[in-house]
Write a protein that binds this DNA or RNA. Structure first.
Length: 525
RNA sequence: GUCCCCUUCGUCUAGCGGUUAGGACUCGGGAUUUUCAUUCCCGCAACAGGGGUUCGAUUCCCCUAGGGGACGCCA
């Protein structure tokens, strides 16, 4: 096998979720790691279920992830077309060949008939395989039935024998063709069946490695039989473990199978999501988990893929009860995210460790969703907004969280929202002296030079004048100036809030202290 | 029902006959810090069960249990 050519072959019958995306990722990474090509092929042979919306959504998701295909829809390539619905003559032609060689035959059994037989066999405890009724029809009989207008399928004449799948992940797996039966390769609507189309296309597209989920392992013997019937060389097989939801169940709408686009909308950087997915069923040789795409493209290897299923553990499914997570709006979905998932941890690292300009570019679309920013548009100098965003960077697990943190800079102090802790501080004896001293000092400067450095000095001076220091001083000022006990490092925080805002909050908290606790309480901090 | 696959801390996993069973996330504790976060230490926590093979099994084989997949004119 000289060149490595991998492919991702989704069927456009729904949205792309982690299951498929991870398979696509593995194919992409393997092709990149081996200097090969990554091909995208659309398996839209189910006329009932395939939709254009789904097709568009799948491509959109792959593009967002950055899993760019070297050949495939919309980019073309030497082995097109890359949508199976556009390759019908090719399948027909190859099926004819099999019929001529006696390796396939038309079958006139109706679906109803087959269903009844299948039920009967199941009732008797027999494997539910086709009984071969049309296997021995003479060419005259076939001709007559076709002329009479009976619709028919084409079945593969499965030869007896053992089949062994040599799998890069699963090892050698043995099957017996007597348990397979004559399967359909061309459906009565003239479209190819999955097992058949996959073989014809993988061969014609010169796919060297078929990397896909284990659920396809039991299809593989059928495909191998077809390779043998055509006299083609098999690709290398690699059936990777599947992904399950946090309840150990197969991924489904209620079990965490949200569309990939949901993660984009939540504001996870694509590289972070890829990094996380790469760790599901694969592990890096050195154990280092935080990785760039470049590194992943270099070090990925099928050898290190695990056989056991991996859990996609980012949603609190218990909390979500039986909700259809795929139907939720982004802000609702956010409520079911585990705050401490590995995805969040990785994503936070990716957000913190990218160049500033890239971070700013990526966070901006979410910033623009903020009502506060929209309302105060023009009031915040770009430079200040930039500083605020950079200061907030360390807190973000995904970009949408910026909305939450941004509110700290734009919401006015409201005494109704203060908590017990803040109340305790405000009511303490020290509060007024510290707050008023600081208030006086900044007013004397009239907002001139309201930088972090200057504020630090003013805080120090406040400390000298009032005789307080450390936590006592800082926490009191924090509550006095912001009304909250959490936030950025204080001098920087106040500088970013701006003189006016700080001065205004200070006035309110001081007024509150005087009004509610005129004498100061007995509590000290 | 038949066939196939899977089972190491809560989670992702390393391990490929001899290890104090390692790492990461989470969690608990501590240090640093004016708070939260960060960072840095420390700690809790696992080989599903039972038989073999072997001087020695997490590792190899068999059985049981549990989970998953396939058996479609779905992919």
């Amino acid at each position: 096998m000289d060149k490595v050519r991998t492919r991702f072959a989704p069927s456009p019958t729904g949205y792309l979720h982690v299951g498929g995306a991870r398979t696509a990722l593995f194919n992409y990474l393997y092709a990149r790691a081996r200097g090969g090509k990554f091909i995208l092929r659309i398996e839209d042979t189910d006329q009932e279920r395939s939709t254009e919306e789904s097709y568009a959504q799948v491509l959109e998701s792959l593009r967002w992830l950055g899993l760019n295909w070297d050949e495939g829809p919309e980019v073309g390539g030497p082995h097109g077309p890359y949508r199976q619905s556009q390759r019908l003559p090719i399948y027909r032609e190859h099926a004819e060949r099999l019929i001529q060689e006696g390796k396939a035959y038309p079958c006139f059994c109706t679906s109803e008939e087959l269903e009844i037989k299948k039920a009967q066999r199941e009732a008797m405890g027999l494997p539910a395989i086709y009984d071969g009724k049309c296997r021995h029809l003479s060419s005259q009989e076939v001709k007559k039935k076709i002329e009479a207008g009976f619709s028919y399928t084409i079945r593969f004449r499965t030869p007896p024998g053992k089949i062994v799948v040599h799998d890069l992940v699963q090892g050698q797996v043995y099957f017996d063709s007597s348990l397979i039966g004559d399967f359909i390769i061309i459906k009565s609507d003239g479209f190819p069946s999955y097992n058949y189309a996959v073989v014809v296309d993988d061969h014609l597209m010169e796919i060297s490695h078929v990397i896909r989920g284990v659920q396809h392992l039991s299809n593989t013997p059928r495909q191998i039989l077809l390779y043998q019937a055509f006299g083609w060389q098999e690709p290398k097989w690699a059936h990777v473990s599947e992904i399950v939801g946090s309840d150990h169940k197969k991924l489904s709408k209620r079990h965490g199978a949200t569309p990939i686009t949901a993660f984009r909308d939540l504001g996870y950087p694509a590289r972070a999501f890829n990094n996380y997915m790469a760790l599901l069923g694969w592990s890096p040789p050195d154990g280092q988990e935080f990785r760039t795409m470049e590194e992943l493209c270099r070090i990925f290897d099928i050898e290190r893929c695990s056989k056991s299923p991996a859990m996609f553990d980012v949603f609190d499914l218990e909390k979500a009860a039986d909700q259809d997570l795929s139907a939720l709006k982004t802000e609702e979905l956010e409520n079911y995210l585990f705050p401490k998932s590995k995805l969040n941890w990785l994503s936070n690292l990716h957000i913190r460790h990218c160049p500033e300009e890239q971070y700013l570019r990526e966070v901006m679309p979410f910033v623009q969703k903020s009502d506060f920013v929209a309302k105060t548009h023009g009031e915040i100098a770009n430079e200040r907004l930039r500083e605020i965003l950079l200061a907030l960077r360390v807190y973000l697990d995904y970009y949408r969280q910026i909305l939450r943190y941004l509110s700290d800079f734009f919401v006015d102090f409201d005494e109704k929202t203060i908590d017990d802790f803040a109340e305790e501080i405000i009511s303490s004896q020290n509060f007024l002296s510290i707050a008023e001293t600081f208030h006086r000092l900044i007013k004397e400067r009239g907002g001139e030079d309201f930088t972090a450095e200057a504020i630090k000095n003013i805080i120090a001076e406040t400390g000298r004048l009032t005789g307080h220091k450390g936590k006592n001083l800082y926490m009191t000022l924090r509550i006095a100036c912001t009304g909250k006990k959490e936030g950025l490092e204080l001098p920087q925080y106040l500088a970013l809030l701006g003189y006016q805002k700080v001065e205004e909050t200070l006035r309110k908290t001081i007024a509150l202290a005087k009004e509610r606790w005129p004498a100061g309480s007995l509590g000290g901090v």
